[in-house]
Amino acid sequence: MSLQKLMEEHIKSLREFANTFFKNKFGVIGVAILSVFIFMAIFAPQISPYNPMDVKSIGVGKPFSPPAWIKIFNKDIPDDSVFGIMGTDELGRDIFSQIIYGSRISLIVGFAASFTAVFIGTIIGLIAGYYGGIIDEVLMRFADILLIIPGLPLMIVLAAILGPSIRNIILVIGITSWPSIARIIRSQVLTVKEMKFVEFARAAGCGDNYIIFKHILPNVMPLVYVNAAINIANAILIEAGLSFLGLGDPNNISWGMMLFFAEQYQALLRLAWWYIFPPGICILLVVLSFIFIGHALDEILNPRLRLRR
């Protein structure tokens, strides 16, 4: 088959996939929400009206100013006590700009940590499932132990030791969340391994590596995609949690860290809802978009589910 023909085949199957995907309501909503946040992350410097770290001295707002639009409900508030569309934080910094820049951290950590976890998990699942025996036993016992040690406390310990930086947060989430993926991939490999075409490939003299990557991997890929989407959602939630505990990268403001500072500076006591509301809603929307995409992929790629309809 010529290269051009191969490409055409590929594009055709992609188009077919896209057609099915965009018929799924959850998938469409997920992609729509995610696109907004990806746009925000890429064009953060262009969209945000202020530098998210600029304090009052360089002309931003008073500390803890509510957003300007509350004057619609209460005309008595003086003009210099309100600020922007989301108000200001404890140092008078613009919350709207922080929210926009925060999308970068969530998405970077989500994608990178999930990529790490899915990569390790898939490789280990493939090896354990394909070779079986003692290799399988050792790898799966190791995965079990990581699943038994409580997740968040383990990540707190690792994050505190490695020190606060985005790279370390990605590492910590990545190396602690591969076991569940490895387990899922392994059980799928066990099923695929028994299929006739694998037997034929072996009879034809194909090597183990060839069989694993050419015959088994393509058949577990749908599962990998679904798990990657769900994993990104979890990674974003974990990043928010670690940052909320003060283990985030102090040089890069993230949504979890905003909530950390909000709690430290008693935003709850001051009833500074404009400070607390936006980060939580943004985390919800981004996480939900990945869950929806995962749900849609699951319905399309997992034929067993289609029977249920």
Partner: peptide
């Protein structure tokens, strides 16, 4: 179910605390 699953647990706590505790 999916929405509550997607919310950071500490944020739900903060919202409840601000509304029912402080306010």
């Amino acid at each position: 179910s999916l929405t509550f699953y997607s919310l950071p647990v500490f944020w739900i706590g903060m919202m409840l605390l601000m509304l029912f505790g402080y306010y």
